[in-house]
Design a protein around this nucleic acid. Structure first.
Lengths: 147, 147
DNA sequence: CCCATATATTTGTACATACAAATGAGTGAC
DNA sequence: GTCACTCATTTGTATGTACAAATATATGGG
């Protein structure tokens, strides 16, 4: 008769995908914050810069699509990266294209390393195979849910 | 040779648990916001009230543990529920116990219904079995990751 | 050429959440 | 009984993210 099996709402919450997904996201958020701390960027900003480094002149719309983030969020992200001197925004017509500065390019390697550290951090706990499997399953669900 | 298989960072992101977990959480957040809209509460606040209704005189610490949220976050949540006249805070010693008001109790049913609607909303897309399976897998991972 | 419409971005504002520091309350050693 | 310590809560402040409304640019029909 473990506590785990009594049917209180407390445990019922764990049967709710909204709830478990949010919990996982917050846990991973803490992990990622730790790993990316020495890049001086939050994980999302680091990912943004990573995409910009990889595809210079990418538009903000494209960034938003790649990151599944709202347009206004991309504006704030790019604003912040500009403030840190890591990218430039070049508005050509109605598009805003984003390009890395030299300092931005130099961050490519530290970001890649932080990202790898994050991968190992959760893989060490979940097991590498299981971690990948979990990621794959969630990704598949995301595609379905996004319609 | 679909685009899906080219190895750009854009697709690599989907192999990152931090990224996929966050994406899932945001998608589910939108679903939940929709479903809970007519309760007048955000999903997290609704869950908080649900726990209070189920275990009157629960302490904020216990609420935080059940919801995996930081103590300061619980203070804000309870503040908000008080402002809406749904719960009362009764500080006895160093503990803050929370109890539902009549209006809070009346919300129990609408909240339960919204919750069920949320369940069906994602189950319809993922399949009920698959949704449950996904939830279970994430919950298991959460337990491991929380240590 | 001008209007209607569609598209990309920006701005104002708001919400959920967290961390760190401050407060307030109980507890055990002496 | 007081001092040191721990614990629950609160407060100040900051971050990430979103929505809705505003703006700016393109585009196609007349």
């Amino acid at each position: 008769m473990s506590d785990k099996n009594t049917c209180t709402t407390g445990t019922l919450l764990n049967c709710c995908l909204y709830f478990t997904a949010n919990t996982l996201a917050r846990i991973m958020g803490r992990f990622a914050d730790d790993c990316f701390r020495d890049t001086g960027l939050s994980p999302s900003h680091a990912f943004t810069l990573m995409l910009v480094n990889e595809q210079p002149e990418i538009s903000q719309k494209e960034l938003g699509e790649a990151l599944h983030l709202a347009p206004s969020t991309m504006t704030r992200f790019v604003d912040k990266l500009i403030a840190k001197g890591l990218v430039q925004r070049e508005t050509s017509g109605k598009l805003a294209r984003v390009r890395p500065t030299e300092r931005g390019k130099q961050l490519a390697k530290p970001i890649a390393e932080s990202w790898k550290a994050l991968y190992y951090k959760y893989s060490d706990i979940l097991g590498e195979e299981e971690g990948q499997e979990l990621t794959r399953i969630i990704d598949t669900a995301n595609r379905k849910l996004e319609g």
